[in-house]
Design a protein around this nucleic acid. Structure first.
Lengths: 346, 346
DNA sequence: TTGAAAGCGCTAACAG
DNA sequence: CTGTTAGCGCTTTCAA
């Protein structure tokens, strides 16, 4: 029941193999290139011919064979997404939504997404995919200061687009969020709610972590609010942060608002505050920075700086396709604004 | 710098286009057919010939062109994974790890994974992918009682493997976890720790939710422990569950162990307990059911029934490839055992 | 505006 | 064991 394709060739039969471009041409009484031209909306046919072809395509439920098309046109209509290979932690939560957004955005442009990971040598998988010409370009995320992947792709002359920025010396199309503005907008939001005494909780690892803290500082400065270094908690482990927040909130003059550079850490802060008997959103306000769906996991739901994944994905795909189609490396990047997603926590 | 491929044809040049099978054949002084045979480890060449070919391949850094190969062999070496299109919630957390595992497992067999989603009509994307012959088979997850995707693929004669089971009437290769045994093992674990008074927290939506509760009941029965219906909390929203757990733990004779059918709900239970001043792991034990990395997000880390994603992915890929290669629909399924991942919460 | 010829890079089928 | 001949299904090039 699985291998019945070789039974009969008659295009009108029930168990027929899929119809090909010749069937369409025959039915529309044109040559197959005309069909091809119509398919790729090239010029060179009358409106009437086009109509006939379209009817035939419809009638035969024809869809061009992807491999054949790729072989001839040197276009796979596939984009590769390199998913982080590291141990998945809560902070990768956003990757899931990101992949979904990417897949959708690519589909909007008739492309598919090949997701791959490395095990060990990071560049190996890229080399292979480039060698077999399995994709037309790549989408990268989680870029560090100097990204070897971007470096490799650039020297190999393969189009790619970056979520985040790498060394400016490298020609690249990037899309990024304005982390500084994002964190700063959280401060604005809280000030608008009447808060005057702030603390910050965040990671200290990646470039964007640094930017978020910077944005926090900038936000406060804009409002002429001062903050002591003791009110800035930077931690690697949830445990450590939990303890630090407990200490922070145990002080006689505790802050009324905690800005966090991570939803996960914000959740930790929320839990710590709750265990001290504080009411979230009333006794103390907490904001996160959107890493995905973690936002929904606290009670009350986190007020968070939302990373607009859909918008980012759309821009990335657009950039990458532009590079593929036009061969231009547009070395400028796009900064996507964040927005506050209000929950009950602030 | 991006479109320089048409400059020169000399295979020995620096900026040369990639070498093809003819280059290899010429260099190894055999016909290209022999190269192809070696590549696909078919028989029909001497050991010495093979060596020469291999050397040439190495020297020229040759890799066969995927599209050309696919066109001829009718094999894309790609598998499609249909990622849930619904709004992503915390309970989809496991999908991320699952995708990673899938991609790895596929790579182990020389295959790539195409991830796609639907927007609106679920089957539409399947039809398209089948029509253009973009993949050799599909991996599905999150199967419901009667899965239209499985039904369609079956009638279209396209190989697929299922994480979870659908209507038994449909020939299918499936891989699933033993939810009943999993939940029941959590009870065993807790009984082993001396607990005698239990409660359950879970969802009530999907088939596996029901199975987990069933497993809980079975586990208790095995040890001759009785549980009142009031100690079983089934909820849809985190808020509701939070409230219910507070009430549960506020009773004069509160349970000492809470088994949960979800890591997210277990986290909610942990937080509720903490806000009552109870010490997790001491005053009250909580176990989850692994939805991914949520386990790491509580303090202390959750003791949870781990879903072995890697194992599952490996089996799924193996099943799917078997169907593709052998054309056999093996209607039997594989039940993967879960294991307890001990944390500090129980 | 349309059609005929050529070939993308590979493997299947069969001949030597 | 090896090489030759076809042709997968499509698009490109060029001639009508």
């Amino acid at each position: 029941m699985a291998g019945k394709q070789a039974e009969d060739r008659e295009p009108t039969q029930a168990g027929k193999a899929r119809s090909d471009i010749n069937d369409v041409a025959r039915m529309a009484r044109v040559s197959r290139q005309t069909v091809s031209n119509v398919l790729n909306n090239r010029t060179g046919y009358s409106e009437e011919t086009r109509a006939r072809v379209l009817v035939a395509i419809e009638a035969l439920d024809y869809q061009p064979h992807r491999a054949a098309r790729s072989l001839r046109s040197q276009r796979t209509m596939q984009l590769g997404y390199h998913m982080p290979g590291e141990q998945l932690a809560a902070d990768n939560a956003f990757v899931l939504g990101f992949i979904q957004a990417l897949v959708r955005a690519a589909a909007d442009h008739g492309h598919h997404v090949l997701v791959f990971t490395d095990q060990g040598d990071e560049l190996e998988v890229f080399r292979e995919l480039v060698a077999i010409r399995g994709v037309d370009g790549f989408i990268l995320s989680g870029s560090r200061g100097d990204d070897p992947r971007a470096r490799y792709l650039h020297q190999a002359g393969v189009p790619f687009a970056l979520f985040g920025r790498t060394a400016p010396s490298l020609p690249q199309s990037w899309v990024d969020i304005d982390s500084v503005a994002g964190a700063s907008s959280a401060v604005d939001y809280l000030v608008g709610k009447g808060h005057e005494s702030f603390a910050y909780v965040g990671y200290d690892a990646k470039p964007w972590d640094v930017e978020r803290l910077e944005g926090f500082r900038k936000g406060l400065a804009d409002h002429g609010i001062r903050v002591g270094e003791r009110s800035i908690i930077l931690g690697d482990t949830l445990d450590a942060v939990h303890g630090d927040v407990l200490r922070l909130l145990g002080r006689k003059r505790r802050p009324t608002a905690i800005v966090s550079g991570s939803d996960v850490l914000a959740a930790v802060a929320v839990n710590a505050a709750k265990s001290l008997g504080l009411r979230i959103g009333q006794d103390v306000a907490v904001t996160g920075f959107d890493g995905g769906f973690v936002q929904q996991m606290t009670e009350p739901v986190l007020t968070s700086v939302r990373i607009p994944v859909d918008r980012i994905a759309a821009e990335l795909i657009a950039c990458c396709l532009r590079e593929i189609d036009e061969g231009t490396v547009q070395s400028a990047g796009i900064l996507i604004p964040t927005e506050i997603a209000p929950g009950g926590s602030a």
